[in-house]
Write a protein that binds this DNA or RNA. Structure first.
Lengths: 125, 125
DNA sequence: GTAGCTGCAAACCTTTTGCGCGAAC
DNA sequence: GTTCGCGCAAAAGGTTTGCAGCTAC
């Protein structure tokens, strides 16, 4: 693996994901950091998010646009079909599922359990 | 809802998804049909896939690129981390999860359970 | 001094959309 | 004849990449 150096931008990007509750997209991270780092480039955000996801320092969530999560303990997610927000689910990760799914020659390394529904804010409208 | 007319293209697109085992993307459907319908447009494939997904005639799978499935009975999926292929999982859909997830004011309409791992073909290499 | 990282901009890929013609009804 | 759907092409996101200069070590 390539040697990795410290960079102020990478640290801020990581903190922005960790401190945000909304599983931010690259664009959201960029918007969060822009006031503080006006010269920050969107390309740098993408590069660092991808790099940290590859290292396992961040988790990447599937979807039409990629979202990132600094909570590495496996957990479920709730996705609002109306506004698109992603929240943490209340159910624990069930490792028994992985063992059960290991069939047909597949090696299972994990799973993603995402619920779809309507969030409280959207339900009120 | 808008009145819907028959179209040869839509039928073929549906059949291509149904007859393919690989949960094809729009591009894959286009490639499958091109020999048979040389004038087919990629835009038409996207339009019809999206329309049939909205009607519930097809299921749309999340991911970096959208995939489609003609099997409407809810079921789990296996995704190969190496080659990206998506296969059907052996586990049944557990509706009890939806009831359990309904907390914090959310209305849950369904869930998606996707296992990540290595498929037999990639494991052999 | 030598990599690695940034900012910038262009390129890329997937998906959507506007438009005029042809097809279904 | 009236709509709706198609093919085409352009546009619109989201994401990646090449490059020259700056930064960590």
């Amino acid at each position: 693996m390539k040697e990795q150096r410290y960079s102020r931008q990478r640290e801020r990007i990581y903190q922005a994901v960790r401190d945000s509750r909304e599983h931010p997209t690259a664009q959201m991270v960029y918007d969060i950091l822009r006031p503080e780092l006006p010269k920050l480039s969107l390309g740098t955000v993408y590069r660092n998010l991808q790099q940290m996801a590859a290292e396992g320092r961040l988790a990447q969530l599937d979807g039409p646009v990629a979202r990132f999560d600094a909570v590495l303990v496996p957990h479920t997610h709730l996705c609002c079909a109306n506004c698109g927000q992603v929240a943490d689910g209340g159910l624990p990760y069930d490792a028994a599922l992985d063992r059960a799914a290991m069939a047909g020659g597949w090696t299972i390394t994990g799973h993603s359990l995402t619920f779809t529904g309507i969030c409280p804010a959207c339900a009120g409208k």
